[in-house]
Deep mutational scan, measured.
Amino acid sequence: VTTYKLVINGKTLKGETTTKAVDAETAEKAFKQYANDNGVDAVWTYDDATKTFTVTEMV
């Protein structure tokens, strides 16, 4: 189990959160659900070296 981080650069929601998951795909599903629940529709990137997902909402 690995800890993954999500950085949110949204128009109305900004911040960071983490989740523990067995792999990046599982973490991504959890983070996308979190973003969807909070109304963030954005572009996703992932950095495997830092285990960090970044979501940037387009203006």
Rank of each mutant, 00 (worst) to 15 (best):
K5D: 02
V55K: 02
A35R: 05
G39M: 14
Q33T: 07
Y4W: 04
L6F: 07
G15P: 06
A49M: 11
N9Y: 12
D48W: 05
M58A: 10
A49D: 10
L6E: 01
N36G: 14
A49C: 08
Q33E: 09
V40T: 05
F31H: 00
K11S: 14
K32Q: 09
K29G: 04
V7H: 04
N36L: 15
Q33R: 09
V55A: 15
N38W: 15
T17H: 15
K29P: 01
N36V: 14
D23F: 03
T56A: 04
Y46M: 00
T3F: 05
Q33P: 02
W44C: 03
V55T: 04
V59A: 11
Y34K: 03
E28Q: 11
K5P: 01
T17S: 09
I8C: 13
E57S: 05
A27F: 02
E57I: 05
G15Q: 13
V40Q: 06
N38G: 06
T52I: 04
T17E: 06
K5W: 08
K51L: 07
D23N: 10
L6S: 01
T50H: 04
T26R: 05
T12V: 13
T56D: 09
A21V: 03
G10E: 03
V43W: 08
A42G: 15
K32Y: 04
A35D: 02
E57C: 11
K11Y: 11
K51G: 03
A35G: 02
V55L: 11
D47H: 04
K29C: 07
V22K: 11
A42E: 04
D48P: 11
V43C: 11
T18F: 14
D48E: 12
D37R: 11
T45Q: 08
A35M: 15
T2M: 11
T12E: 11
T54E: 04
V55D: 01
T12G: 13
E16K: 05
T19V: 13
F31N: 00
K20T: 10
D48A: 12
F53C: 01
D48M: 06
M58T: 11
T45C: 08
V1N: 08
F31S: 00
T45W: 06
V22G: 07
Y46L: 00
W44V: 02
F53Y: 06
T12P: 07
G10D: 05
D48R: 04
Y4A: 01
T45S: 12
T3E: 09
D37N: 10
G10S: 14
N38I: 15
T3R: 03
A42T: 06
D41A: 08
I8V: 06
A21Q: 05
V7L: 06
D47G: 01
T26G: 06
N9F: 09
V7Q: 04
G39N: 11
K5H: 09
A24M: 13
V59C: 12
A21P: 01
T56Q: 08
A35S: 05
N9P: 05
Y34N: 03
V22A: 09
T52S: 02
I8R: 01
N36I: 15
Y4F: 10
T45L: 07
I8E: 02
T18E: 10
K32T: 05
G15C: 15
F31E: 00
V43M: 09
V1I: 10
D41L: 11
T56E: 07
F53Q: 00
Q33I: 10
D48Y: 05
G15N: 08
T50Q: 04
V55N: 01
W44Q: 00
K29S: 06
V7T: 04
L13F: 15
A30F: 14
T54N: 04
T19Q: 06
T45Y: 07
T12C: 15
W44P: 01
T26A: 11
V43R: 07
T12Q: 09
K29L: 10
T56H: 08
T54V: 05
L6P: 01
K11W: 11
T18M: 09
K32R: 14
A24D: 03
E57N: 05
G10F: 15
K32S: 03
Y34I: 09
V43K: 08
T2N: 10
D41G: 06
A24S: 08
T54R: 04
T50G: 02
E16A: 06
V55H: 03
G15F: 15
E57F: 10
T12H: 14
K51S: 03
V7R: 04
E28N: 03
K51T: 02
M58C: 13
A27I: 02
D48V: 06
K32G: 02
D47R: 00
T12S: 11
Y46I: 00
G39E: 06
D23A: 02
N36E: 14
K32A: 05
W44F: 13
V59S: 11
G10H: 13
E16D: 06
G39K: 07
L13Q: 08
G10Q: 06
I8A: 03
T19W: 10
A49N: 10
Y34R: 02
E28W: 15
Q33K: 12
D37K: 13
A27S: 01
A42N: 07
T18R: 05
T26H: 09
V1C: 13
K11I: 15
F53D: 00
E25M: 11
